[in-house]
Simulated assay, not measured.
Amino acid sequence: TTKIPFKLNQNQALLTFEDEEVAQRLIKMGKHTLNLDRKTTDVKVTPFTLGMGVKFELHVTISGKKINVSEVPELSIPDDWVRDKLELNFYKSEHGGGGEVENVKYDKKSRTAVITFLRPGATDGFARCTKYPFYVNGRCYRLPVSPSTDVHLEKLQLFSGISKKTILLKGITETEDDEESVQDMIEIHFQKPSNGGGETERIKYVSKGATWVCFEE
């Protein structure tokens, strides 16, 4: 289900009716006079239009041959030597390594590396391992490791929507009543057939500030 946000501003209300014919009839009428706490207020009824939205499918593939390594210690040796030490360290089975290494990409600036193993499924041993021992120069460092993932988007779509069952009320006069009481009075008014209304599904009124509401496509 796609959720589309909409910003509801101060002194506005959204009403969704069970029957879209009711909403369309109220929109054609344009203006309505409400009785709120012994005061009358003219409100404008407008169609409810959602802004532009984006819908897509996110696919994540976990590699069985690559792992990401971070926090590689800064060593006073050439980068090639660091790559060799990483390869030897992750090859050794006594440390729970993944086996024969095909390639090591090491970035000194970010202190990260990507280890690619020769055998598919070699990274399975790291699934529950968040820290892996790295032995160098007589010291042991615990390096964070994580599976390498490939993320890509599919079925990207741009859309905008109009809810034919929902109306937007603007220009509601502020009263001394609390927000919920005013909301009830608005709902009662628009439920009456004599006012051109009908059965409502939901309503949201904002007296101060603004709020975000979500609609499901």
Results as ranks from 00 to 15, higher is better:
residue 33 T to N: 07
residue 23 A to L: 01
residue 77 I to E: 13
residue 72 V to S: 08
residue 75 L to P: 01
residue 30 G to E: 11
residue 51 G to I: 03
residue 47 P to D: 00
residue 29 M to W: 01
residue 61 T to H: 14
residue 69 V to M: 10
residue 23 A to V: 02
residue 65 K to T: 15
residue 65 K to P: 10
residue 26 L to V: 00
residue 49 T to V: 08
residue 82 V to M: 05
residue 64 G to V: 04
residue 36 L to H: 09
residue 27 I to Q: 02
residue 89 N to D: 06
residue 69 V to S: 07
residue 30 G to D: 08
residue 78 P to W: 08
residue 42 D to G: 05
residue 74 E to R: 10
residue 46 T to A: 02
residue 63 S to R: 13
residue 85 K to A: 00
residue 30 G to Q: 11
residue 67 I to R: 03
residue 64 G to K: 15
residue 79 D to V: 08
residue 77 I to M: 14
residue 49 T to S: 04
residue 33 T to G: 03
residue 28 K to G: 00
residue 92 K to C: 00
residue 59 H to C: 07
residue 45 V to H: 04
residue 86 L to P: 01
residue 57 E to G: 09
residue 87 E to M: 09
residue 74 E to W: 11
residue 42 D to H: 11
residue 34 L to R: 05
residue 60 V to S: 12
residue 91 Y to I: 03
residue 40 T to Y: 15
residue 58 L to A: 08
residue 71 E to Y: 14
residue 59 H to G: 03
residue 25 R to H: 09
residue 84 D to S: 11
residue 90 F to N: 04
residue 56 F to V: 08
residue 50 L to W: 02
residue 79 D to L: 02
residue 81 W to T: 12
residue 36 L to V: 08
residue 53 G to C: 06
residue 44 K to G: 10
residue 24 Q to G: 00
residue 77 I to S: 10
residue 76 S to G: 09
residue 45 V to R: 01
residue 84 D to Q: 15
residue 92 K to V: 03
residue 22 V to H: 03
residue 91 Y to S: 04
residue 45 V to P: 01
residue 62 I to E: 15
residue 66 K to E: 13
residue 62 I to D: 15
residue 62 I to R: 15
residue 45 V to T: 13
residue 77 I to N: 13
residue 67 I to Q: 04
residue 30 G to W: 07
residue 77 I to H: 10
